[in-house]
């Protein structure tokens, strides 16, 4: 059975509508108008134990709202949610022990104290005995390469060290499902890479399920085989990352460097011409035609250099969202 099972999930918020200016402010004060804003509409997701799933979408797409419904922080307006066999919004202790939520922009460690003090509080709250919590702390510290940082006040740690300590606090109770909302936000490239490899390692070792949102495509490509794409509250892609590129970008880009410049129309039969700049020609060729057309190009022209590229995933997704917005 799926560890995360979501059927027909929707959430509608009632927000106050205010016109700008003094008149608008007064009207807003005297007679408040509300309108209903659908944040999430009819989402179906099923995640098996042990999967790492990336959750993508522009700001305001409904990612955080969905995560909050999955963790039980907000009630759904419609639909059903089951996580680890529980209905999240009842927030039963047994459910809470099995999940964790990490929010990149919010911290839960005690600011003035070293992480170890916060970890002690967590151990007590989750009812983990001292010997066991020591064992887990050693193991996690080892995986996260934290050592003397654990005895230094949190306020004196770098952002990357703090995030690793936050992850430690979030994982001390060995949750089966991890909800990570922008876990690498603001981290430098090195720290991002370390957090990513830790998450992959943690998933391998414990078989924990991970659902993560991120603005950094690197997080998604490094960790997730499966991605969910959400836009304006609706889920419109659920599948592998490669499948997404295949579906959204059926063409690959071929860059040719020729010994002599040639007129553009000579390339029309090979693919669609993207650009031509002196000796350099860029063509878009459909994937299934790629080998045949590249073979022809090499045979027909005097080619100095040839390069085949996939357009970057960010670009594909960005393009997709723009198309959706336009329709």
């Amino acid at each position: 059975m799926a560890i995360v099972d979501v059927r027909g999930l929707s959430k509608t918020f009632r927000v106050a509508d205010k016109q700008p200016g003094l008149g608008g402010t007064l009207r807003h004060f005297v007679q408040r108008r509300h309108r209903l804003v659908p944040a999430v509409q009819d989402i179906n997701i099923s995640i098996e134990a042990g999967e790492i799933v990336g959750f993508l979408g522009p700001n305001g797409a409904g990612k955080t709202t969905t995560l909050k419904m999955l963790t039980g922080l907000i009630h759904p307006s419609a639909g059903s949610v089951r996580v680890a066999g529980h209905e999240p919004f009842r927030r039963q202790a047994d459910f809470l022990r099995q999940i964790t939520l990490v929010m990149g922009q919010k911290q839960q460690l005690i600011w003035d104290l070293p992480p170890l003090d916060s970890l002690r509080v967590h151990a007590a709250v989750y009812g983990i005995d001292t010997a066991e919590s020591k064992r887990r702390i050693t193991e996690l510290a080892d995986m996260l390469e934290l050592d003397e940082e654990l005895t230094r006040p949190v306020r004196k740690l770098s952002l990357g060290q703090r995030m690793k300590a936050e992850l430690m606090a979030a994982l001390l109770h060995q949750p089966a499902v991890l909800f990570l909302d922008e876990p690498t936000l603001g981290l430098d490239v090195n720290a991002q890479v370390r957090v990513r490899s830790f998450l992959a390692d943690y998933n391998r070792r414990t078989g924990a399920t991970v659902l993560l949102t991120s603005h950094y495509m690197g997080d998604i490509t490094a960790l997730c085989e499966r991605v969910l794409l959400i836009h304006q509250g609706r889920l419109f892609y659920d599948g592998s990352l490669e499948g997404l590129t295949d579906r959204l970008a059926p063409c690959r880009q071929v860059r040719l460097e020729l010994r002599h410049a040639l007129p553009a129309q000579m390339f029309e039969s090979y693919g669609s011409l993207e650009s031509q700049n002196g000796n350099e020609v860029r063509l878009l060729i459909e994937r299934d035609q790629l080998t045949r057309q590249v073979g022809r190009l090499l045979a027909d022209f005097d080619v100095c250099d040839l390069e085949v590229n996939d357009p970057p995933v960010e670009e594909i997704i960005g393009q997709l969202f723009r198309q959706r917005d336009a329709t």
Binding site: T71, G72, L73, L96
Partner: peptide
């Protein structure tokens, strides 16, 4: 204000106690 109430609500301990 800063949303850390979410962390409190996700602890398996009574939120009023906390």
């Amino acid at each position: 204000q800063n949303g850390s109430l979410d962390y409190v609500l996700l602890k398996p301990i009574d939120s009023q106690f906390w």
